[in-house]
Computed example of a mutant assay.
Amino acid sequence: MSWTPRAVAAMLGISPTTLRTWDQRYGLGPSDRTAGGHRRYQDDEVEQLRRMVALTAQGVAPAEAARQAREPGAVHPRPVGAELTADAARTARRGFLAAADRLDEPRIRRLAIDLITRHGVVAAWQSVLFPFLVELGERVSRRGAGVEVEHLASAGLLHALRAVPYPDGTGVLAALLACAPEEQHTLPLEALGAALSEEDCRWLGLGARVPVRALCDALERLRPAVVVIWAHDRDLAATVPLDRLRERTDAVLLAAGPGWEGVAVPDHVRRPVTLVEALQLVLDQVRV
């Protein structure tokens, strides 16, 4: 399957400008073009860019990160279950798209549960579920219709992610997950929560549109090790008073989502750009 630059940037949580820069400077660009001259990324090229994002987030210089990103297997998410190959991921995405076109939410749910069971949350989300949502969003943008398909698909995926068993017992609260005020996109946080459950880490989610005061009150009462604040849109990210939150908690603050791209954040705030990186940052705090 091929992807537009806009879709790739959305999947990776980076700006289209960053994508163009990496193409121009390091040759991490698309090999295909449509008959009309539009650029299209193939799955293996998206995986190279995914490795580039992870490496630069770890502090690797961009030129060196680009070199390593071209090496197969340079960066991989934690293996869970059977390997999810590129061919299998493409086939799975076609199955999800067909179910969505039929408005078959129960089948979307079953497909997602089966995929997560066999391959784990991280692989399922990065290789199939999130690209599937991006493709639906692209269709709505092109056709000016189909929002009901997108919403139904999101509901099916939400059910599947919440089907991952929550850890038993008590202990440290690894992460508190919250959306920025007025932010309504919650699925990426649900994916992180499900991935934490797979790692036997306790977490709680405050959901969409979390007022700052409510988040501050929750921080004081729950005392999580990590706080993850998701923003899909830059204007919404700008409404989060990160310095004020720091005064209320000793927790590590993570600013996650494409809305934080280009937003200046304090030095104490970490900026994960992939599910793998966000998961690892939480695990680093609770597994010392």
Score class of each variant (00 low, 15 high):
91 T>P: 05
196 L>M: 05
43 D>M: 11
253 L>F: 03
250 D>E: 15
189 L>D: 01
215 L>H: 07
83 E>Q: 14
65 A>S: 06
181 P>L: 14
32 D>R: 15
107 R>D: 09
136 L>P: 00
22 W>N: 02
276 V>S: 13
252 V>C: 03
102 R>H: 11
226 V>N: 01
164 V>H: 10
56 T>A: 09
100 A>K: 04
107 R>A: 14
42 Q>M: 15
226 V>K: 03
187 L>P: 01
140 V>M: 10
73 G>M: 12
115 L>N: 02
255 A>F: 02
286 V>N: 00
98 A>W: 05
9 A>F: 00
29 G>D: 06
33 R>Q: 13
271 R>Q: 12
77 P>E: 02
186 T>E: 12
41 Y>P: 03
34 T>H: 03
248 R>E: 09
153 A>V: 09
55 L>K: 02
257 G>R: 02
232 H>N: 08
85 T>D: 06
169 G>S: 09
61 A>K: 13
216 C>G: 11
9 A>D: 02
226 V>L: 05
105 E>W: 08
42 Q>H: 12
104 D>G: 08
47 E>I: 12
55 L>M: 07
162 R>V: 07
31 S>K: 13
182 E>G: 07
220 E>C: 11
166 Y>G: 02
207 G>C: 15
245 L>R: 01
256 A>F: 09
246 R>F: 00
127 S>T: 11
138 E>H: 09
250 D>C: 06
194 A>E: 00
202 R>Y: 05
235 D>Q: 13
195 A>M: 02
215 L>I: 07
2 S>Q: 15
34 T>V: 04
107 R>L: 15
112 A>G: 14
103 L>Y: 12
125 W>K: 02
275 L>P: 05
47 E>P: 08
44 D>C: 09
159 H>G: 06
85 T>Y: 05
269 V>L: 07
175 A>K: 00
201 C>H: 06
180 A>D: 03
230 W>G: 06
117 T>V: 04
146 G>K: 01
233 D>T: 10
